[in-house]
Design a protein around this nucleic acid. Structure first.
Lengths: 203, 203
DNA sequence: GTCTATATCATGATAGAC
DNA sequence: GTCTATCATGATATAGAC
């Protein structure tokens, strides 16, 4: 029983992840999730009483994938350069494996910011982020980098990493590239962003 | 009649814009659009036979707002620096007035890329973009900027401009800022991005 | 645990009076 | 053109057999 339970529940979570990530809460259908999981609607509701409950499970996983990484990195005792490189590398790896993650999270977060922010963006995130401006300002006063506002720099960093995934359909069309070429551009971005940021920060 | 027609139709378009932009196609309700416009569902369907037809009108306007600007700028005979500055200024202005535009467009574009891309991203966009890499490569060979892949640079540019709007709920929470402070950060971004890009491109 | 009905409700869309 | 019903569909959720 426990064995079967786990398998079915995991299959449901996998299926729900795929469907919610690609269609969002409003566009997702319980029927489609059931199909993907190879079960029927009745059983789906047996495991997750409501669509909302199932969604919350999926969203929690997704948000955690995004938030936990940054938490861990910012908590470590590293130089600003090292922190930036780690963030770029880890997020690019994460997003190359889950390209729909940022669009899904940002979109749902936007539709219902208060609810999810209160639940998942706890004080820990804010307090570990607060160390980033300190690092930046230290480097600025040492003269190691030119003056940059820490919030703007963090925004730049996250933008450069995440947007190419969110904006794929648009950029790909403008460039006239196919999926393969675009994927190469994304893979090349890891080193590009690191160089780009370093260059932008030089005094 | 023509007078009243136009007023009602315009009120519908305004209302539909608000609702579609904030909730997306799947989350939007004809009932809510009718309410916003101060009419009832029957009349709404009289002006736009189906939800799809109404959505197409709204999406076309939105996509055009984004695409037309870049088209015009890239067609002009300007230096790379001037082009970049113009794109940053014009898009930041556009998005500060319509903060939900990029998320709306990118999201819907993603759910149904083929359909909309074929209809709206015509050959004109691609051909006017093709001039961007030429400008970049010229500057590189002149030694005016360091070597940068043109596609990456364009991706950087659009990312830096658009992402802060798409990612507002996340960044705002991480920063712990209220709406007013975040708006100031966005307004300050115009000059920040221009400086940042210049610095990153320096040899 | 898993399936097959079925209840319930919301939504897009239409018909028809004014 | 505008409104008030009303229809038809499809989706979530539940009940109950196995």
């Amino acid at each position: 029983m426990a064995q079967n339970d786990k398998n079915t529940e995991q299959r449901i979570l996998d299926a729900a992840g795929e469907v919610f990530h690609s269609k969002g809460f409003d566009g997702a259908r319980m029927q489609e999730i059931a199909q993907h999981a190879g079960i029927n609607k009745g059983l789906l509701h047996y495991y997750f009483k409501t669509k909302d409950a199932l969604f919350d499970a999926i969203f929690g996983i997704a948000l955690n994938q995004i938030v936990s990484r940054i938490n861990i990195i910012l908590e470590q005792d590293l130089s600003l350069d090292e922190k930036i490189d780690l963030i770029v590398d880890q997020y690019m790896d994460l997003l190359l494996k889950n390209p729909m993650l940022p669009r899904f999270v940002l979109n749902e977060l936007n539709k219902n910011a208060d609810k999810f922010i209160a639940r998942h963006f706890n004080q820990k995130v804010k307090s570990s982020f607060s160390k980033f401006p300190i690092s930046v300002n230290e480097e600025v006063s040492k003269g190691a980098i030119r003056f940059i506002d820490a919030h703007q720099l963090f925004t730049d960093l996250i933008s450069l990493v995440m947007f190419p995934f969110v904006g794929k359909p648009m950029l790909q069309t403008v460039f006239g590239t196919d999926n393969n070429e675009y994927k190469k551009l994304l893979e090349a971005r890891k080193s590009h962003i690191k160089e780009f940021l370093k260059a932008a920060m030089r005094v």
